[in-house]
Measured scan of single mutants.
Amino acid sequence: MKVMIRKTATGHSAYVAKKDLEELIVEMENPALWGGKVTLANGWQLELPAMAADTPLPITVEARKL
């Protein structure tokens, strides 16, 4: 699914347009965010693609819901 990742004042957030859902990312498998699992505030887990740590945000990526 397409997910937009952006930086907020409190960390990172994910927006899933198909579900009209925006949630804070509360847990990251990798400190650089990319190439691992993230957990959203509502409990969803997404697998993000591997990208460079300095990838500019906001960005829309293809993520997989676990």
Rank of each mutant, 00 (worst) to 15 (best):
N30W: 08
P58E: 01
P58Q: 04
P58I: 06
K7Y: 08
P56T: 13
N30Y: 13
K19P: 10
A17R: 09
V3A: 01
A50L: 12
A32Q: 14
M51K: 07
P49V: 04
A52I: 05
L66F: 11
E22G: 06
M51T: 01
L57V: 05
K65F: 15
E62N: 12
V26K: 03
R6T: 11
E29S: 09
H12W: 15
A17Y: 15
K7Q: 10
V16Q: 03
R6Q: 11
A14S: 01
P58R: 04
V3E: 03
E22F: 09
K19M: 15
K37R: 13
V38E: 02
L66C: 11
T8R: 07
R6S: 14
L48N: 01
A17M: 14
W44C: 11
Y15A: 07
M51H: 02
Q45N: 06
Q45A: 09
G11K: 01
L33S: 02
T55S: 05
A63W: 04
A52N: 10
T39E: 05
E22Q: 08
K2T: 15
A41R: 07
N42R: 00
D54I: 06
I59A: 12
M4W: 07
A9C: 08
T8D: 08
N30K: 11
R6W: 09
K37E: 03
A53F: 10
W44I: 07
I5R: 00
K2Y: 12
I25D: 01
K65A: 12
V26I: 12
R6I: 11
D20F: 11
G43R: 03
A41M: 09
V61N: 00
E62I: 15
V3W: 01
V16T: 05
W44P: 02
R64W: 12
P31G: 11
L57E: 03
L48F: 04
P49H: 05
M28T: 11
L46V: 05
V61T: 05
P56M: 11
G11M: 03
G36Y: 05
Y15R: 09
E62S: 12
A17E: 14
G11E: 03
M51Q: 04
M28Y: 12
E29D: 10
M1G: 03
V61I: 09
L66S: 08
G36C: 05
E47W: 14
T8I: 09
T39W: 12
A50T: 10
A17I: 15
A41D: 03
G35A: 05
V61K: 01
T39K: 11
I25S: 01
W34S: 01
E22T: 11
Y15N: 05
N30G: 05
E27D: 13
A52P: 15
E29H: 03
M1R: 02
P49R: 05
M1F: 14
L24H: 11
K37H: 08
K18D: 15
E47S: 10
L24C: 10
E23Y: 15
L66I: 14
K37L: 10
Y15K: 09
K2R: 12
L33C: 07
L24K: 12
V61S: 04
I25N: 02
L33K: 01
M1L: 13
N42S: 08
K37N: 08
S13T: 13
L46N: 00
V3D: 00
N42P: 01
A17Q: 12
N30I: 06
E23C: 13
P58K: 05
L40M: 05
I25Q: 01
E29C: 06
R64T: 12
E22C: 12
T55R: 03
E27H: 13
V3F: 03
